[in-house]
Simulated assay, not measured.
Amino acid sequence: MSSARDVVFPAGRQALYERHRYSPAVRANGLLFVSGQVGSRPDGSPEPELEAQVRLAFQNLNAVLAAAGASFADVIDVTIFIVDPASKFERIWNLVLAEFWGEAPHPTATAIGVTWLYGFDFEIKVVAKLPEAPAA
């Protein structure tokens, strides 16, 4: 059995992931495990405004999903991390549901309040079921 990981890199961000020494996503057993995505600009710095940061985190997430041939519709489990959730949860939750989650049925979701995210206010990690390849 090979121990090589089947890593997925979104276009244009491989150097950023290599610099921080982690994989954006790994395929395994028909699933895609996506590392936490933040609202980082191309240079890795945080988008300062909260709503723009959340939107950018989802854009970064969607780029990883697309690189694996998936979309948010394939996501089955979501974990979000929020710094200071007492003041930010409602704004983030309403933004996420309205703009990115689409129609029911929704994925499972867990929200966790944290004290630090390396300068970010929001992070999202997901597990998605990879679409099955069409029969040849």
Rank of each mutant, 00 (worst) to 15 (best):
G69I: 03
E99M: 04
T79R: 03
E90S: 15
G30R: 08
R41G: 00
A98D: 13
V126M: 01
I80R: 15
A133D: 11
A52V: 02
R41A: 10
E90F: 09
V26W: 01
Y118Q: 10
P131A: 06
E103A: 15
R27H: 05
I76D: 05
G69A: 06
Q37W: 02
S71G: 15
N29D: 14
E123W: 00
E47R: 03
S71W: 02
A28S: 14
V83C: 10
V96M: 15
A111Y: 05
Y118P: 00
A63S: 14
A133L: 13
A111I: 06
S40E: 13
F72K: 03
A133S: 12
P24H: 04
D43M: 09
D84A: 14
G69S: 06
G39E: 08
S35D: 04
V96I: 14
P85M: 12
A104K: 14
L31E: 08
F122M: 04
G30F: 02
N60E: 11
N60T: 08
G39C: 07
F81W: 07
V38E: 12
G69N: 08
E90C: 07
D77T: 06
L95G: 09
I92C: 07
E123Y: 01
N60F: 09
E51M: 04
A73T: 13
R27F: 03
H106G: 08
E99P: 07
A70N: 02
A111V: 09
Y118F: 05
P42H: 11
G36L: 06
N94W: 06
F58A: 07
L32S: 10
V127T: 10
A63F: 00
F122Q: 04
R27V: 05
N62H: 13
V83H: 07
G30Y: 03
R27G: 04
W93G: 14
V34M: 01
G39M: 06
R91F: 00
L95N: 10
S23Q: 11
L95R: 12
R41Q: 14
R91A: 15
V78I: 15
L50Y: 01
E103L: 11
L65K: 05
A133F: 02
H106I: 08
L32A: 09
Y22C: 13
P107L: 02
P85T: 08
E47T: 14
G39L: 08
L117K: 01
A68F: 05
P85L: 11
P48D: 10
